[in-house]
Structures are given as C-alpha cells and as structure tokens.
Nucleic acid binder design. Structure first.
Length: 767
DNA sequence: GCCGCCAGTATTTTT
DNA sequence: TACTGGCGGC
C-alpha cells in the first residue's frame, strides 16, 4: 500500500496530474496541503523529478516551514533542496543575486510601512505637496495599488489624463521611486515589481529560473495580485507545469491588491488547464460546515461548489449575545476554562475577531483569569520603537546608503544633533548629489554647520567603528556592542519606568532572535550575514511565531487565521458595524460586503468541533458607546443550526444576558490557586506556563460542571479503545456517572492518564 | 535644541 | 480612547 492510497479520488487525481497547468479548487478543510505535499512527494519519488526543480510558494513563512516538514516525512530525503517560500522571500533571494542588473546595489534594504511613511513625508516636502490635502497614507496606498498592477510612474501619469489630483500623485510616485533608489531601498511591493522587471528585461536570468523551476506550485492562489500572477506566469512560461491551489470563497485580501480574477480566469489564461475540485471537508462537523455553506451561498459570482463532510453532525453552533464587550470577553475566558477543566487544552481554542482593537478586552480578561494566551498581530514586534532604532543601526552599518535609517539614529540616543543640523546635512547632500551619511562624514564641507561638526565627527566615528567589527564578530555580539557603545539602555531609563522595562525586555528578545538566526544559518550551512538577518526580520509575519506545541489560547484577526484550524473557535464581535464593518455596510460597492462575507466563511470554517459566535449589544469603540445589532451574517445561518443558550433568540429583541453565577466565587479562589500563568503576547513570545488546576479547584469545578452538563451516556465502556482529538488513542480505565455527565479516565498511549468529562472530551470509540 | 502640551484623527484587514 | 504631529516656551 502506498502513501497515495489514503487520498480520496479527486485528491489522487490532483497528485497524479503532474504536467501542464492545473487548477485545484480546494474548499476549506479539503486537504489541500495534503495534496500539495503528496504531489511533491509523487514528483520526486515516482516521476524522478529532481527536488531542486520544484518551487512551492506559500502565503506565510510558517506555512512554508510546515510544508517542507511534511514533505520531509513523506520522502525522507531531498526535501531540503526544494525551494519552498513566500512570494516575498523568493523575490528577495532572486534580487540579492541579480538586482545589480537594474542598477541597484545587491545589499539593498527593505522598507516597512513605517519607513515608507517617513520617506513619503520627505517626498511630499520636496514636491511641495500639502499633506493635509493628500494624506501620506492615501498616497502610499495609491502607489501600492499601482505597483500591484505593475503600473510604473510613466504609465500612471499617462493614465491620469488631465486629472489634476492624479497628476500630483504621479509626481509623488516618481519622486518616491527616485528616493527609494537613492537610498538603495525597496518597499514590499518593489520586491515583486523589481523581480518581474528583472525577469522581463534579462533573458538569461529568466532562462536560468525557468530551467530551475520546472514544477511550480502556488498555494492560496485566490489571494495573489497582478504582479504575483505575472511573476508566476514568467517563471512557468517555459515548462508550463504550474499547479495553483485556492478557494475563491476564501479570497480576503482585496485591500492588498489581491485579484480574484486570477483564480476565476485561470482557465482562460491557460486554456488547456485541468480543473479539479476538492469538495470533501475533513475538518469540521456537519453543523459547522452547513452554517458556513449557508452563509457563503449569499455571495454571487463564485465558482459553484458544495462542501460536504462524512463527519457527524456534531454540536450546534453556539450563539451568545451579551450586554457589553466586557461580558463577552468574560464569557469566552470562562468558557475556555470550563472546557480545560473538562480535559481540553488551552491550545484547542482560538478567539477570532475582525479588528485588532478587540483583542484588548479579551487580553485583560485572560490576564485576570490566568488563561494563558498569545495574541497574533497587532503592533508588530519589529515595528516597536526600540527595535526599529537598533535595526536602524544595523542597517546603517550594513548599507550606508539608507538615509532613513541614518536619520533615525543620528540623534538616538540624544547626542545634541538637532533638526537644524539634520536639515543642513540634507540640503548639502541634495545639492551635491550625495547620500546623507556620506555627507555627514565630512562636516567641514557643510555650510553653516558650526559647532555641530564635532558631534557629527564622533557619530561617524562610532558608525565606522561598528562597520569595522562586522567581519570579525557575530551579529549577536555586534548588536550587544551597539547597545553598549551607544548607551542605549541607559537612555531608556530617562523615560517612564514601566515603558523602559518592557523595552529592555524587547531588546533582549531581539538579541535572542539574532542568536536564533545565527544558529539556524549554521544549521543550513550558510554564512550568517547582517543583510540576511535584516531581511529575515523584515519579512516575518507575526503569525510565523505561532507555536502549536505551546499550550495557549490564540487570539487573532480573521485575516491572520487563514489556513489554520482549531477544535474550538470563538468568533467574537459578531455585530453589524463591526463585522461586517461599518465601512463595508455603507460602501456602495457590493463586492466589499461579499469580501466581508468570505471573511466570515473563513472564520467559521476554522472550527473543527465547536463554534461559538458571540456579540454584544453595546460596545466601546474609540471612546464612545456603539449600539449594534446582531451581524447580518448570523441571520444567514438557519436557526436550526444554532443553539442560543437557555432561550430562543430573536435577533431584533432582547436576549438574556449570559451570566455565570459561579464567576465571582471562583475569581477569588483562583487568585490563590494559580500562579502567574499567562503570557502577554506583546513581544515576549515564549515562556508560557500552563495553569494546571489544583485539587481543590478541580472539585469545585466538578460541581458546577455536572450541574450544567447534559447529554446521553457514552457509547464506549471501560476497557475500550478510544480516540481523543488532541491526546490521540488510549484505553478507557474508568467511567464514573455523576449527575448528567460522565467522568471518564483514559490512559492515553502518548499523553498518559487523564480524567475528563464525556460531554467535552468527545471520545470516539475505535475497534 | 529640547520638552511638554494641545488638537486632530483614526481603525478594517497585512506581506 | 490613544496615538501622533505641530507648535510654543524655555
């Protein structure tokens, strides 16, 4: 029996279809990763394709890592030479080798949103644009959309016609590009655009990569934008062995330029394309899947498909409405604790929401209740001030042409170099056509610099000193040296104490990350270079740090949740105005609401066993109270799929507030029973200790649990073999009846002896 | 050159 | 509510 026998019919077909264009329409939870990994294995083992000739593009670094791992376990060898990466990191790799052909230095730096904004301000000043009329943000997004459509400044200007505003933007765009180049920097979009330009203009480079990537696979294809599409088309142009996997119902990145037509029109673009639909869902229960199907059915213009499952119906979808966001958060935290007491793990649970701001209330509750958690997203670790400062030092050391970085640190910590001086350097640099750093190296040539010259000299000497260390010192040590010699830590002390403490911890974390990078580079037998470290740092998404092994509840936006799955999912803030957001409700573009609905579909289909939808009648948004109705998406779910708690819910009328009468008594008890057992996701990504309940607490909970529990007797007996979602297989040692639930003791093969309540454990008997 | 206060704005999502 | 940027006083 081969590994391919376990696949279902369409899955196998997709695996065996190795040559020519192939579109796999993979519904949520239909095993697409499985198909991709098996397909790679099949190429290598059965078709004797050299792993070196395979390229797999994923959406996140995390997905890339997992894919490699899974291929590894299937094939056993060669998986390390498969090129698995995200679009962005792939482009960086190509550009590091060849971007000099486009007139850049190969040690270019990558600008994040923050840097872009700084640069944009600069540009506006130079082009005399009033940033009150044209906001930096909107300029940036206009330029970004243009880049995503592969529209360069010339064409942009041409398209503007006589439109005054557009002509202005074109001017800004042109200047912005010029400055990026002068700084030897690329923004996120450039990584893709420049790669396409490179391949379009350098036939030998194109040939090189076409020969190398004979088999190409693209995951999450519904979220590719036009540049990405062109890139793939160029790369696959010769051998045409292109396999794309996606689900138009899960396209949720329109705001980032994702072009849903890429997937809808694939068959037009590649007329000989084979199309395979994967419609069997292995992830969710019938009820959850039905709810998802009913919601998404309200969208027009989708590729028809009907997801079905052989899994049982499972529980109904829970719906709970509360008075306020606080009550909602309270319920979620409490509910998770309840399930954990019944044998589930914290990491069986995820709380998903529409906007990052919603995480705050949840976080507060989780801290108060000692529920270990991890927040994904929000303010990026690498966007924190102290981290950006130190990275700016490293960037300056690595690439002296990055003006933004130099300017950021020239007076951090304070060295008495003020705005006047900076402007003088700037002007002089512009006049002579030199870089900022270059100019300040010779202060005596800067008009009017006066007494600041000495300060500039010592700053330059400091940077030069660091530069001299790069070859002989590890990145970690260099970083330590920078912190030491600049007196950065001491400078933090002059701020608020609490802030300073958190910042110092973040800096320690940065040092750890540098060390981790160096270790990883050594494992890969690559030299650990400063450029490579900075680039890795620029391209990580917060989601990449998610660790399934760690026992914490995951809190994140619906967007971040794409591609993940959890036994129990909470969708919080299911209110009109929040989700769907106010913006989309009032938008006159119907597509906006459809995208929002797809987001809802993504959320629902993350759940394997249980799904809980929650909403609040009123909620504080930006300091003022908002009164919201239940989300229209909930109304699209048939009532018979919903469990609304103790009473029937009527969407427009009052619903009883869910209150846990035990909450108060427990709160006090818990304060003593648990130690500090939560992680704050803000930067300190590790070090979660799980809160194991004490004896006393366990018995207290039993009381409440049994009183509240329901359900029939288990369909297994003592001595039977059973399977648990998380702990795997085991033997039932004891079943004790009590009230309306059963307490089951199971000896798991790998997880040891555990006690749990039958209602929550959902053990499945195996023969 | 530095610091602190005030006003205005924002939040929808992110590589 | 919370953050940012601009402005004025020292």
């Amino acid at each position: 029996m081969s590994i391919y026998d376990k696949l279902n019919e369409p899955q196998r077909e997709a695996v065996y279809h190795t040559d020519g264009p192939l579109l796999i329409l993979a519904g949520a939870g239909s095993g697409k990763t499985r198909v991709l990994t098996h397909r790679i294995a099949y190429l290598i083992e059965e078709r004797n394709v050299n792993p070196w000739n395979i390229l797999a593009i994923t959406f996140t670094n995390k997905a890339a890592g997992e894919m490699r791992e899974r291929v590894d376990s299937l094939v056993g060898f060669g998986s390390e030479s498969i090129w698995v990466s995200t679009f962005h990191s792939m482009c960086v790799r190509i550009l590091r080798r060849f971007i000099d052909r486009l007139g850049y230095d190969n040690r270019f730096t990558i600008y994040d949103t923050d840097d872009q904004k700084t640069l944009m301000k600069e540009v506006c000043k130079k082009v005399a644009i009033d940033t009150k009329v044209f906001k930096e943000r909107s300029l940036m997004s206009a330029i970004s959309s243009a880049k995503n459509e592969l529209i360069l400044p010339d064409e942009f200007e041409l398209n503007a016609g006589g439109d005054f505003a557009k002509l202005k933007i074109a001017k800004v765009y042109r200047e912005y590009e010029a400055q990026l180049k002068a700084n030897n920097a690329l923004d996120f979009d450039d990584l893709l655009v420049k790669t396409v330009q490179l391949l379009q203009t350098q036939p030998d480079v194109l040939e090189n990569y076409q020969e190398r990537f004979r088999y190409i696979m693209v995951d999450e294809y519904q979220d590719t934008n036009t540049v990405q599409f062109q890139l793939v088309r160029l790369l696959a142009g010769k051998y045409r062995n292109l396999c794309v996997v996606g689900d138009d119902d899960q396209s949720i990145y329109k705001f980032r330029g994702a072009n849903i037509r890429n997937i809808l029109d694939f068959e037009h673009e590649f007329s000989d394309a084979c199309v395979i639909k994967l419609e069997q869902n292995y992830r969710s229960t019938g009820n959850i899947l039905n709810a998802a199907n009913r919601v998404i059915a309200n969208n027009k213009g989708r590729k028809e498909k009907t997801l079905w499952t052989a899994n049982g119906e499972g529980e109904l979808v829970h719906l709970r409405q509360f008075d306020t966001g606080y009550d909602e958060a309270d319920f979620i935290a409490e509910d998770i604790k309840k399930e954990v007491r019944a044998g589930a793990s914290y990491n069986d649970h995820a709380v998903l929401y529409r906007t990052n701001a919603q995480s705050r209330l949840l976080e507060e509750k989780f801290v108060a209740m000692n529920v270990p958690y991890k927040i994904v997203g929000g303010v990026n670790f690498y966007a924190r001030r102290e981290i950006k400062d130190l990275l700016a030092y490293l960037k300056t050391i690595d690439n002296g042409m990055d003006d933004i970085a130099v300017r950021r640190i020239i007076n951090v910590p304070k060295r008495g170099i003020g705005l006047t001086t900076i402007n003088r350097i700037q002007e002089s640099a512009a006049e002579r056509g030199l870089g900022f750093y270059e100019t300040l190296m010779a202060p005596e040539l800067i008009p009017g610099i006066g007494r600041s010259a000495a300060k500039l000299d010592s700053f330059a000497a400091l940077i030069e000193y660091f530069k001299g260390l790069t070859g002989q010192m590890s990145i970690t040590d260099l970083l330590r040296e920078v912190i030491e010699k600049t007196g950065y830590m001491e400078s933090l002390d002059s701020e608020d104490k609490e802030d300073a403490q958190a910042r110092k911890e973040n800096i320690d974390e940065l040092i750890n990350k540098a060390a981790a990078y160096e270790e990883a580079a050594e494992d890969r037998d690559e030299p650990a270079t400063l450029s490579a470290f900075l680039e890795e740092v620029a391209l990580v998404a917060d989601i990449d740090s998610l660790d399934e092994e760690q026992d914490y509840v995951v809190l994140m936006t619906l967007h971040s949740a794409k591609g993940l799955e959890f036994p129990h999912v909470y969708l919080a803030g299911m209110e009109d105005g929040l989700f769907p957001s106010y913006m989309t409700i009032t938008s006159d573009d119907r597509d906006d609401l459809e995208e929002e609905r797809r987001l809802c579909y993504v959320g629902i289909t993350r759940a394997e066993q249980e799904l809980t939808l929650t909403c609040a009648r009123r909620r504080m948004v930006r300091g003022e109270t908002q009164y919201n109705k239940i989300s229209r998406f909930i109304k699209e779910i048939p009532a018979e799929l919903l469990d609304t708690g103790s009473r029937r819910i009527e969407p427009e009328t009052e619903v009883p507030v869910q209150q846990n009468t035990y909450a108060h008594a427990r709160e006090a008890f818990r304060a003593r029973a648990f130690g500090a057992a939560y992680s704050n996701g803000a930067g300190k990504s590790s070090g979660v200790s799980s809160g194991k309940s004490s004896q006393g607490l366990a018995s207290l909970q039993k009381g409440s649990q049994l009183a509240a529990g329901s359900g029939g007797s288990p369909d297994y007996a003592e001595g039977d073999r059973v399977r648990h979602v998380k702990f795997g297989e085991g033997t039932v040692l004891e079943i004790r009846s009590g009230g309306r639930d059963y307490e089951v003791t199971v000896d798991f093969d790998s997880a040891g002896v555990r006690k749990m309540f039958a209602k929550f454990a959902k053990l499945v008997k195996i023969s």
